[in-house]
Each structure stands twice: as C-alpha cells, then as structure tokens.
Design a protein around this nucleic acid. Structure first.
Lengths: 275, 275
DNA sequence: CGATTAGTTGACTTGGATCAAAATTCGTGG
DNA sequence: CCACGAATTTTGATCCAAGTCAACTAATCG
C-alpha cells in the first residue's frame, strides 16, 4: 500500500515549509482575504507593508473553484487576471494546430499562472484543472497599479515573470536531450523537488496527470512514458503503481543518462587524407 | 548570384519599417543617445514623455561593441544590464551539463536580451555575437526605478517579459513536433518574418548562424539540418547556397508536414475480441 | 456491475542519430 | 595573389530509440 504523501489541500496547512530554495521576495498576491491566507508567507514579498496587504484583500483578488477537467481560461481569451493556485493541480496546454495539444506546464499550490497573457492581452495557453482546484484570481490592472506605488511589488512581479522564462528555458533544454529516460527522470526529480519545497515527501507521491499528459509535456508518446516507468521500476529506481510513485534510488535517478558519451566535438581532429 | 538582402547595419537606417505586427508599446530603451537613436521608434513605448527619454540618455544606457565570437555575458555571471541589439546578430545558449551546449535563441536588431537574468540576479544563459555587433547596455536598477515613476514604461517592460515567455512557449511546441522538416520550416519562416518586419526581404537573406547552431536550436544534429536543407532545395521550396537562402515557395514551406494524419484518438473504438 | 478510460506490453517500422569521408569555404600569412 | 590549414558543409551507410499499431488488463464511475 502506498501512503499518499501529497494529498488533500488541507493537509498543507500545518506549517508551510520555507520558500523554495531560490531566494526571498516571491510574488505579492493571494487569496480571498490575503491577510488570513495560508499561502501568504509564500507569495507576499518579504516586507510588504500591511496597508498594501489590506488593499489587496478588498479589491485585488477573489477566489474561484474549478472542477477536475474544467478550464480556468482558454487560449485566445482576453486576459484580465493572473491566477495563484491555492489548492489542487492544473496543467497548461497549447493547441498549435487543429487536433494537436501540447502540455507546457503543470502547476501546484502557490504557483502563479497566466503570465503569458500580458504579452498581447490574450491568454497564450489553456489552463485545465487536473482535479478539483481552488485559485485566486488577481486583477492584473489593479496589480499593475499597486506595483506603481510599490517598488518591492514591482520587483517581485518582474522577478516572477523572469522565473517563468527560466523555467521554460530549462524545459527547452530538457526537450533537447535525446533520451526518454533522461526526460522522465528530470520530470520526476522536478516534481519531487517542488513537493519537497511544499513540505511533502520528496520520495513518495501521487501524480495528478495522466501518462498522455506527461508524454505531451516531455515530447514522448504515452506508450514510451509507460515503458520508461516500467524500465525504471525494473532497474530498482522507482516503485510505480499507477500514479503512485515511490522513488527508491534518488541518486540513481539523478544520474540517468550521464553514461552517455559527450560526443566530443568532431571538428577538432580532421586527419586529412593527404597528411 | 545572390543579392544579399540582409546586410550592413547602416542599410537599416532609411525608414525603419512599422513595428512587427503585434501592437505598439514595445520596450522603452535604447542607445548611446536615445533621442538620436535610429531604433527609437522601435523600442520606446508610444508616448513616452520626452523628459523621460532625456533621462535615459544620460544615465540609463551606454553602447557596447562585441566582436564576432565574443560573448556579451555568460551563464552564471551577475546580472546588471539588459541589452538591446543595435546592429548585428547574437545567439543565446545554455550549458546544462559539462560539454553540452544548447542554443535557445537568436537575436537581431531591436531585440532585448538578458531578461532571464532578473529571476535570480544571475544570467541564465550566455550571449555570443554571431558577427561584429553593437548593443546598448541598459542599467536594470535604473530602468526599474524609472518604471516606478512611469506606468507606461512599467507596462511595456512587463509586456516585454511576457513576450519572451510566449516566444519560448512557441519554441517549446516546435520542439515537440516530431519531424525535422517541420522544425526547419518553422525556423525559416520565423527568420523570414522577423527580417520582413525590419524592412528586409522576407524571401532572400543570409543566415548568420552555422548549421550546428541551427541544429542545436531545433534539437537536431547538424547533419540532419544539412540534409533537410538539401531536401527542401530538391523539392523546389528553397534555393540554398551556404548561408544564403532564397525562399522560392513560401506557401509550400508553410504547409510542410500538414499532410501528417492527426493520429485519431485511438481509445475511441476498442472492438473487443469477444464481441 | 457493465461501460468507459487509463495504463501496460508486444511486434514491427522508421526517422534521425552516428560514424565516416569528401568537398567547399574561409582566414592568414608569405 | 596564391597556398595551406582549419572550419564548415554535404553526402553516404548503418543502427537504434522511439513511434506506430494492436491487443489486453486494470481502474473508475455512473
């Protein structure tokens, strides 16, 4: 039997962990009433004056519930709000052409969504709940206005945008790495790290997304994802039972694909025929 | 013989074209003396008060030259400046692990670089000049300070960050699309469109990057890139002579890979054996 | 408890990676 | 201006990881 380490939203309340590793000053926003929000520590930049928090309470944000499978916003819809995940999980996806869907991100509690919408006033992606989910809707115009009067908030917001850029850059690099094992390992390690930062077990959890979603995210077919899970299990790296995952050998998982010869730059030695 | 449609920086001066297609209010910055900068129309948000421009002149930005092959900044270096390309071309690359390099973007005149640095105060990528290049260095602290007093500037800056997110999202989707032809076609179309927005010929130009760079960007080997170029030429889509490209059949190029059947969702009809 | 959806596993095929070598271009200095 | 060496690009032959097609099993849900 698996102990589900990553379960109900409520379970998060007792003592939220420190912020991820990176550095303080995340983003400045939250929930129905920010001053009472459980995630406040996570998302308010350190030192936001309480009068600003108060202001946010009243006008800035409002809660919203999305049922599993429903969408929070869709590609092409006008952009008005950023969303902060309060509980539950979502995915972002794009539809480059009719009939094709690509998952571009998975989101968990405390993460900010919708940042791609302010490029041109329309959402560039679709956000779909992977389970019943609660988010805070944050009015972007109001947020921008507040940021005008608060350099700290402005800085945190820009930093958040930049983080998103870096996140995607990393995914990009990942998709360049050729082997399926490497991709899946990196995916699991990333999940593990994010759960860990939220106070859940880094080694045992329940994934909210399907094999197809994972495949779409990693640029693989669902069959390959499934096979790779099986292979990892056979190698003693994981215990897999449907969406329940137990990481048995974290170090091993982390070193997947490192065996691969770095393919020395071939251009170096040319050995001309007529030497 | 090829007429090089995309050549010296100076050639750009007579009448810069309209801004890309998207919408006004790009970013608010430029060159040695912004008020005289040729790119001003491009990068100042519409309606920036001239006293702000004046302010930028003096303290905000300073020009810098980079020789072909040299780097503007490197992954991990402390982040202080954003850079706007004045002339020339650069690439951005990441080094996920020792000995491996992945190209994440190519930059041309008017484009802003370094946005990934404000996530954590260090550059997340390395910027290398593909030819002799001029950029404006823009002090980020000063820019942020100016943005505090200017909602328009703040908005333009955030928009610029969001654009970068969308750009990467598109690349991400591209790397998911399986065929090499589709990737190269999309790459060429993107180049073409950006050159066109700058007033150069959309159908004839000289690429500044090597096959290896293109391959790294598209997640392909340089051999595959070369072969795909040859294939396109054979199909009458392109004229390729080293880095000189002439697009012969734009529509054809745009519809590459559309023939691929959408792979109907297999789960629909199960035809149980015992039916 | 049927019916639908999600996941696993097998057999086969293939696109692009790899390995290899030749051809072309380019930079440099005599 | 020409020649030499280095770097870039092209092309060929072979191989393999992942895609595709297919059938089966396990979970989930009205």
């Amino acid at each position: 039997m698996f102990v589900t380490a990553y379960e109900s939203p409520a379970a998060a309340s007792p003592g939220l962990p420190e912020r991820p590793g990176v550095r303080p000053a995340t983003l400045a926003l939250t929930a129905p009433h920010c001053s009472r929000c459980l995630l406040r520590e996570w998302c308010l930049p350190a030192g936001t004056p309480s009068r600003v928090v108060g202001c946010m309470d009243k006008r800035l944000s409002s809660p919203r519930r999305i049922r599993a499978g429903e969408s929070l916003y869709r590609e092409g819809e006008p952009f008005h709000f950023l969303f902060e995940v309060r509980s539950g999980n979502l995915k972002s996806s794009l539809t480059p052409e009719k009939g094709q869907v690509r998952v571009s991100a998975f989101h968990m509690a405390g993460e900010l969504m919708g940042l791609d919408g302010l490029a041109d006033g329309r959402h560039a992606s679709t956000a779909t709940a992977l389970e019943d989910t609660e988010v805070c809707a944050i009015s972007y115009p109001l947020l921008a206005e507040l940021a005008q009067g608060n350099a700290l908030l402005q800085g945190a917001l820009m930093q958040q945008l930049s983080r998103e850029i870096v996140r995607e850059l990393q995914l990009l690099v990942l998709l360049g790495s050729m082997t399926s094992g490497k991709r899946l390992a990196a995916f699991l390690l990333n999940l593990s790290q994010r759960l860990s930062a939220r106070g859940y077990s880094p080694s045992e959890f329940r994934m909210r997304m399907s094999r197809a979603d994972i495949g779409s995210y990693l640029g693989l077919t669902l069959e390959t994802v499934s096979r790779t899970f099986s292979a990892f299990q056979k190698q003693g790296l994981l215990d897999v039972d449907q969406r329940h995952i137990r990481i048995v050998n974290l170090a091993g998982l982390a070193s997947i694909g490192n065996a691969r010869a770095p393919r020395a730059s071939r251009a170096t030695r040319a050995t001309p025929v007529n030497a």
